[in-house]
Amino acid sequence: MKLLKDKRNLLIGGIIIGVIAFMLPLFGNPKNMGFCIACFVRDIAGGLKLHNAAVVQYIRPEIIGLILGSFLIAVVTKEFKPRGGSSPVLRFIIAAFVMIGALAFLGCPFRMIIRLSAGDLNALVGLLGFTAGVAVGAFFLTKGFSLGRYQKQSSVEGVALPFANIVLFVLFLAIPALFAFSEKGPGSMHAPIIISLLAGLIVGALAQKTRLCMVGGIRDTILVKDTTLLFGFVSIFVVMLILNIATGNFNLGFANQPVAHSDHLFNFLGMALCGLGSVMLGGCPLRQLILAGEGNSDSAISVLGLLVGAAISHNFSLAGVANEGVKTNGRVAVIFGLIFLVSIALIKIYQVKKEEAR
């Protein structure tokens, strides 16, 4: 009965989230970008002047809403549980590489599904790479990979990131001159602030209650043949596919897709890096935001890693370029990231085996 209830909740939650993700571009967000954790965190990094890519600078209320929506529903339902302390430095670095991989592809797993629902076949290549990365990560889990056990922490630690987001939003409204704003490009395209914030709050609350996670769905399918968590993203895809076809927004193919490129190898490898790193962190970028809202300081560290990874991507020209592809710097970074994460996983597995042998 619980399994059926979980699937039902994920289906309903996915439908609502899919409708919201479809509506946001109608209110001003970039096309096929109702939600994109990687893109929106990148824009926030630009808004905070952590990078100087003028076309991707804006404090995205959707991200603030996701964290606060999760926080509020967790507090109300008594699921707010401050915890953390598991390999914080490694988590930070892994999260930075997750962001580098996602921005090489030009989207997080959430946007990958959104792009696919609009007919962007480059996203199908990304999905194959993402699945491959998650599969490798799942294999490492079976061999004993772990970043360690978390511990209970104080409430102050748990509320730190939600509180920081409240402060950021107040400053964004009260003293906008503190921040950078794109005058053209994706960063200049956004829904009205109140709509963006409400969308984030609703999706954050739904994602917290349903445990929505693309990585978790594929990982669980591979490891224990449990497809429950996939229901959420399948329902997002289906409802957005129907809406895109009904409104003429469906464009099947590789070419002429908004904020996308057809560098197939690095669409694949970029999302493989994102998938592998996300398994090592214990969830996709969306899930990290939701867990951070619940009081998980490990995920809060991961969110900060995503933010810095976005800044690094644009300061060092690692991100993919729409309609062009991934340049040399980005290709080197993605390949190095894959080697680095595999090395970390193998070292951690060796340490676990060594401890077990004692």
Rank of each mutant, 00 (worst) to 15 (best):
I193H: 06
L197C: 05
Q208D: 10
G129K: 15
V203H: 05
P109R: 03
I194E: 07
G107M: 07
G187H: 09
G148P: 00
L201C: 08
H190D: 04
A191D: 04
L198Y: 02
P192Q: 05
V125H: 00
A123R: 03
A174G: 03
L147E: 07
N122Y: 00
H190C: 03
V167G: 02
F130Y: 15
L128V: 08
L206Q: 01
E183F: 09
C108K: 01
C108P: 02
A118C: 11
M112T: 09
G185Y: 04
G133M: 08
A135T: 15
A207F: 12
L116E: 02
G129D: 10
S182F: 00
V167I: 13
R111H: 06
I193F: 09
G119F: 04
R111K: 14
V156Y: 02
L141I: 14
F105T: 06
L124K: 02
G126W: 10
A205F: 00
S155I: 13
V203Y: 01
P186D: 10
F179G: 00
K143F: 06
I202R: 08
L121W: 07
I113N: 08
Q153L: 15
R115Q: 10
L201H: 11
F179Q: 01
A132K: 05
F179K: 01
A207C: 14
M189D: 01
M189C: 02
G144V: 13
A174E: 07
V136I: 15
M189Q: 11
A174V: 10
L198A: 12
S117M: 07
A207R: 02
L198W: 07
V159S: 02
A207I: 06
A160H: 03
I166S: 07
A180R: 00
P176E: 13
G200S: 13
R115L: 03
S155V: 12
L147K: 14
Y150A: 14
F172Y: 15
V125W: 00
